[in-house]
Amino acid sequence: MDYELGAPGPAQSEYLYHFTDRVGDRPDWVPEEIRLMKGSERLEAILWEERFRAFPPFGAADSGASGKRCVCFSECSPEQMAFLIQWWRFRPWGLVTTREVVNGLGGGAVAYVPPEVQQSFRRWGLGHWAVSTGSKNSWMHEREWRLPVPSPAESVKLPEVVAILVADAGWRPRRRAVAWTDGESGDPLAGPGGNPFAVPFEDHPRLWRETPVWVWDKDAQRVVEYKPGALC
């Protein structure tokens, strides 16, 4: 990163959270196989792919909204996380990065504006940058950030993941074959390749092994931090 944002103020946080689950509607423009996943399953898919899939956010997919695909984040202090999980139905599954990372890739905080101002954003082809404060909900509880993904790309790789957020200290992503060896000679193989002696070496995703894990403690209403590899 060749530049940095200023230090966050007391009402801000350096951390941005990409939650993979929440109670509520699922956008019908997201593929059904993703909508039917649990939050832990979506998180596991991201850990293995090491990429975030992008879709138009709520409101940005409306007819005439001119919104781009985005990866969405919530700027959230540790104190506010309890508020989001308890009152705003987020579930503690996801990944954590920083404002500098998202801003450096072209992302930023959305504008919370009245409906008539949001229409101006849409007319300028910026429908994905504005959230309407009309109706009974101002939507400002999560201080949303969005990272637009230019077409025809459908996903983006983050250069830095600060932590992995999970709801259960006993949860682990499933192991997969990450390497192959010849069971007779012990020589490494590029893949099974029809070799009857090929033996897979299974392991957790690289990010799970190399990234701190934050486990949400429901009783204490805070995260418990584990060092990389501690939950392998």
Rank of each mutant, 00 (worst) to 15 (best):
W87H: 10
L95V: 15
D62I: 03
A65I: 07
L84A: 09
A82S: 13
V101I: 14
T97K: 09
R69I: 02
I85Q: 05
F73T: 04
L105M: 14
F90Q: 15
Q86L: 14
P92N: 06
C72R: 06
C70K: 03
S63Q: 01
R91G: 02
G104S: 13
C76G: 04
P78D: 12
V102W: 06
G107K: 06
F83H: 14
G94T: 00
R69Y: 03
N103W: 11
P92H: 03
R99Y: 03
N103Q: 12
I85D: 04
G67W: 06
R99P: 11
V71S: 13
C70S: 07
P92V: 02
D62E: 14
V102P: 03
E100G: 11
L105K: 06
A60V: 05
E79Q: 15
G59D: 02
A61D: 13
M81S: 10
C72F: 11
L95Q: 09
W88L: 08
Q86W: 01
E100I: 05
G59S: 01
F55Y: 14
V96M: 10
N103F: 15
N103C: 12
R89F: 12
G104Q: 05
A65M: 04
G67V: 05
G104E: 05
S66Q: 11
V102T: 04
A82H: 04
A65K: 01
C72P: 12
P78T: 10
G104D: 03
C76V: 13
G106F: 03
C70N: 06
E100N: 15
L105W: 07
S77Y: 10
P92M: 10
R89K: 13
Q86P: 01
M81T: 11
R91C: 07
G94F: 01
R91T: 12
L95R: 07
Q86E: 15
F83R: 13
M81P: 03
G67N: 07
P57S: 07
C76R: 01
W87Q: 09
A65L: 04
R69C: 08
S74Y: 03
S77Q: 10
F83E: 14
G64I: 00
R89E: 11
F73V: 00
Q86H: 09
W88A: 05
I85H: 04
G104L: 08
E79I: 12
G106A: 09
G94P: 00
Q80L: 07
P78S: 14
V102A: 05
E100R: 14
L84M: 06
E75R: 10
C76L: 08
P56V: 02
P56K: 01
F83T: 11
A61R: 09
P56Q: 11
W87K: 10
